[in-house]
Amino acid sequence: MSISAGMVKELRERTGSGMMECKKALVEANGDLELAIENMRKAGLAKADKKSGRIAAEGLIGAKIANDGKTAAIVDLNCETDFVAKGEDFIGFLNSIATALLTSDVETPEQLQDMKLESGKTVDEVR
């Protein structure tokens, strides 16, 4: 099957992955977009497992204070490189966690992973 540029574009938009990675996934899935997404997700989990032992020594600390001045949230979010820490996505993620914490009753890291952000997704889904 021939993989069109439009198919690659759609997969890129849905996954945020690179063009060549998307094309490779579509070729392996014989043009099936949903199968390509599933295979990319599985491959991503395998990559994440390999990286889990690596040190995340960079990151940011963010703080938010509620409008009433009675509640505050402090978030320490780590990553592997300073380039990631300086990126808009990382900073936005940090701020969205801090904002959500102001109105939550999270007490454990496990609860934090399942906490819904303003986007409707959980912290773990966005991560």
Rank of each mutant, 00 (worst) to 15 (best):
R54A: 11
G59C: 09
L101H: 01
E21M: 11
S104Q: 12
K23Y: 03
I61T: 15
L45P: 01
T81A: 06
G16A: 11
D114L: 12
E13Y: 04
A66N: 11
I74H: 10
A46Y: 14
E80W: 01
D105F: 02
A43E: 12
L35A: 10
L45S: 07
D105A: 12
L101R: 03
E110S: 11
L45Q: 14
E107M: 09
I74Q: 09
S4R: 08
E58F: 12
I91C: 00
K50E: 13
N67D: 13
D49S: 14
K50P: 10
Q111W: 02
F83D: 07
L112I: 07
D49E: 15
K23E: 06
K24F: 01
S96I: 02
G6P: 06
M7R: 13
T99C: 00
D49H: 12
D105S: 15
E10W: 01
E125N: 11
F93P: 02
S96A: 15
N95E: 15
T122M: 14
M19K: 08
E110W: 02
E118D: 15
G44Q: 08
E21F: 01
K47I: 11
D76H: 10
I97N: 05
A85R: 13
L117V: 09
V106N: 03
K24N: 08
L26V: 07
L102T: 06
M1A: 07
E58W: 11
L112G: 06
F83S: 12
G6K: 14
L94I: 05
I91L: 00
F83A: 14
F90E: 00
L45D: 04
G31C: 03
L26I: 08
T103P: 03
A73L: 04
T81W: 10
E58S: 13
I74P: 15
M40E: 04
A36S: 09
K64V: 11
A66F: 05
T122V: 13
A98N: 11
S119H: 10
A36P: 05
L26Y: 07
R127W: 12
E28T: 03
L11Y: 01
K51D: 05
N30T: 07
T15R: 05
L11K: 03
V84E: 12
E110L: 08
S104R: 12
M115P: 00
G59R: 11
G16W: 10
A85T: 12
L45Y: 10
D82H: 15
I55S: 11
S52Q: 12
I74E: 10
K24S: 09
A100E: 02
M20C: 09
G18I: 02
G69V: 06
R14I: 03
K9A: 13
L112Y: 06
T108R: 08
A57G: 13
K116D: 05
R54M: 13
A46I: 14
L35E: 02
I91Q: 01
A73E: 03
L101P: 00
M1G: 12
M20A: 12
A29K: 05
K42S: 09
G59D: 05
L77K: 06
A98E: 05
L26K: 04
L112F: 10
V8S: 01
T108V: 07
A43Q: 13
F83G: 08
V8G: 01
E34M: 04
I91T: 03
E38L: 12
